[in-house]
């Protein structure tokens, strides 16, 4: 059962990566990245899950506990994701301030034009 669940999380990662490529809006790209992050964390937690697992808290060794290692690893990565997301939102805001659009194609066009202008002068 957990095999199926972790397979679906891979599917969610796939959806997120497709959004990352196909969406032209910068904020939509960031949202897709967020989906990829969350789905990766889900995969890490689900791939070690056995039905009947309990949270690895408590002194009793006899109980069937969940694997604590991936949980501890993804716990730190959630916070990192948040910091990276804030930083990339800041860069997006810088771009919007400069080019007044979120459309990546337009921003690329403007940047190219700027380079050409610099080359001419």
């Amino acid at each position: 059962m957990s095999d199926m669940a972790s397979a679906i999380t891979i599917l969610i990662v796939c959806v997120g990566v497709l959004g990352l490529i196909l969406k032209r809006n910068l904020l939509m790209k960031l949202l897709s990245l967020n989906i990829v992050n969350t789905a990766t964390i889900l995969f890490f937690v689900l791939v070690v899950y056995r039905p009947g697992d309990r949270a690895p808290i408590g002194p009793d060794i006899g109980v069937q506990f969940a694997d604590p290692l991936p949980q501890a690893l993804v716990l730190t990565s959630i916070v990192i994701n948040f910091g990276v997301l804030a930083l990339s939102l800041l860069f997006t805001m810088v771009l919007v301030k400069r080019y007044h659009t979120l459309d990546l194609r337009k921003i690329e066009k403007f940047v190219k034009e700027e380079y050409q202008e610099e080359g001419q002068s």
Binding site: P56, I57, G58, P59, F65, P68, L69, Q71, A72, L73, L75, T76
Partner: peptide, 8 residues
């Protein structure tokens, strides 16, 4: 008593 804390 929290094994996750024991790791990180």
């Amino acid at each position: 008593s929290n094994a996750v804390f024991g790791v990180y």
